[in-house]
Amino acid sequence: MKSFRWSLPLAIFVILVAFLWVGLSRDPREVPSPLIGKPAPAFELAKLHAPSETLATADLKGTVWLLNVWASWCVSCRVEHPLLVELAKANIVPVYGLDYKDKPDDGRAWLAQHGDPYTASIVDRDGRVGIDYGVYGVPETFLIDKAGVVRYKQIGPLTPEALKQKILPLVRELQK
């Protein structure tokens, strides 16, 4: 009974510290996506460089691919862009670009200026597909497997660490 007297408050204190430690070290901007493990929302959109052609999610069945949400007005996209260009050169995984709420002319000019790492870019002029994908902060990157299931979501710019430690190992595993 005597040891219970101080061990109970101590236990409560330790639990509280553990909860605060984990809770406060999290980034509140990173909202976990409910899409992970679910089929990627279907779309069929016009290609940025060939507006008469479309690209649909169904066309990508059987391949592991990245969907990178970008826009010419997006400042942080410039931060991750060199990394995407490098990734495209390495030819590991096809990257498709979703030009989100952008004027196609601006998007094309931006890619001409900064380099085009995308296998193809598609135009989401009114942001409807963005809403389907739960996009709330550009850039965002989704990793989608052969069966069309979302496996990973990067919120904000890609970093060399995220690419090396999370995305590329997962890509290799899914490509098997």
């Binding site: 909202v31 409910p34 739960g134 709330y136």
Partner: peptide, 8 residues
């Protein structure tokens, strides 16, 4: 909205 953005 929850299906797209989660309970948040």
């Amino acid at each position: 909205l929850v299906a797209r953005y989660g309970d948040f």
